[in-house]
Design a binder for these strands. Structure first.
Lengths: 233, 233
DNA sequence: GTGACATATAAGTCTGACTTTTTAGGGCTG
DNA sequence: CAGCCCTAAAAAGTCAGACTTATATGTCAC
């Protein structure tokens, strides 16, 4: 999934990207295209394409007579899904997870409010279906199935908001939720209160109750934040 | 500013990027690298680098024996600052402006609340300075100077939130605010109520009153939304 | 110390030849 | 006619080498 066989330059990126985002090359470090090409055993053309991509992510800057310098973290395109994935796979994963969860807590309630106003009948049905799927898998250590419906639920809400900026955060939320289940301690069944809240959000959206949908979703994201505080205080 | 002389491939991007985001090549359109290279009068290497960048933005997909196909709008990396700039410069500028303003209305209040908790003394001072600058230039058609302080104000708030995802939206907010002043009808002096709200936010942050800072900022962004509704209902 | 100038360096560009993957179509067989 | 395989073509992908350009830095004269 992460490594789509998109050629040699993709392979180079899969190694260089994580290395840079992990801080292996501190900001200001200077790399040389030729050396990198040799190290990865690819031609300069391929290496240049990889550098161009890193440059478009604002991870590095390429200047004549100097080389490829690593930019400070504050300038990175941290919304690039690829960058998010690299960072979530790296050392500052906890920090990144917190940033993204705070982002969720700002976005999702507003998105749910908008969804209550703009969701189509089909989207309402999908939402209910997802919520029911969560209920059905909330007991008996069926975490995998539960996760699928949880991710789908939030994706539908973000999509139904009618705002493309919100909709594009579906992947980010998916990464966060998946990460929580796979990497963090998640032995027990999900919090029953959270499951109930999802069902109620689905109801509120169907009932066109924007205020209620927003408030309920706020409780969901607040819960996610508290969960983080417990795991990594 | 937009055209940083970053070589030939940059020039190609400055033409091709806006063309694609403007929908000039509808989703599914197939381009051929060689033809593009001829058209832009650059070598294939340069053209390939440009295509790689567009690919990393999820604007296009390159496949063997097929060509470079334009991806559907829903898959674009709409948070990429470059993509945002291209779209703001294009035909669906109003739609884009609305999406971003809704995004602001979700993010900035939360960011202001966090800023009240985490802002350093220096950031509090900057905030006050910006607010005063806005007051000083709120009358007498000094829109340019007003804008500078307005942009700086929101940038400081987002930065002081301590959340890197929020902080990186500073550029986006700057684009929106700048665009509002430069392109939309903005003959009159800014709304005095808005100016007052900014001053009060600065006070609330300095007083560590998170709830108040959030509520006041919510009013600011609500005002921005209403302003949009008036201009483009 | 300051300025102009020369030099070395690394990115940038171009070209042509070659490889690999994948689609489309033709021809074979049932 | 349907189905299948197999060939051939098309376009991206890769590589190597030569050349250009910008620029940081050191040198020298003043």
């Amino acid at each position: 999934m992460s490594t789509r066989g998109r050629g040699l330059h993709g392979h180079v990126l899969d190694t260089l990207g994580p290395a840079i985002t992990a801080g292996e090359y501190p900001p200001g470090s200077v790399l040389r295209t030729d050396e990198l090409a040799q190290h990865f055993e690819v031609s300069r053309s391929v290496m240049r394409e990889a550098v161009r991509v890193l440059e478009s992510m604002h991870l590095v800057e390429s200047r004549r007579r100097v080389g490829v310098t690593v930019r400070p973290k504050a300038e990175w395109n941290v919304y690039d899904p690829q960058v998010i994935r690299w960072r979530l796979a790296g050392a500052d994963r906890p920090h990144q997870l917190r940033s993204l969860t705070v982002l969720r807590s700002a976005i999702e309630p507003v998105a749910a409010g908008l969804a209550a106003q703009h969701a189509t009948a089909e989207q309402c049905a999908e939402l209910t279906e997802c919520a029911l799927g969560m209920v059905a898998n909330s007991r008996g250590h069926r975490l995998g199935e539960y996760l699928v419906h949880d991710v789908a639920f939030h994706r539908v809400v973000l999509g139904a908001s009618g705002n493309e900026m919100f909709a594009r955060l579906g992947d980010v939320v998916a990464e966060v939720l998946t990460g929580r289940t796979q990497h963090e301690v998640m032995f027990e069944d999900p919090d029953p209160a959270a499951v109930t809240l999802h069902v109620q959000v689905a109801e509120a959206v169907r009932a066109r109750d924007a205020v209620r949908a927003e408030e309920l979703t706020r409780r969901i994201t607040m819960g996610a934040l508290e969960e983080l505080d417990i795991l990594a205080p």
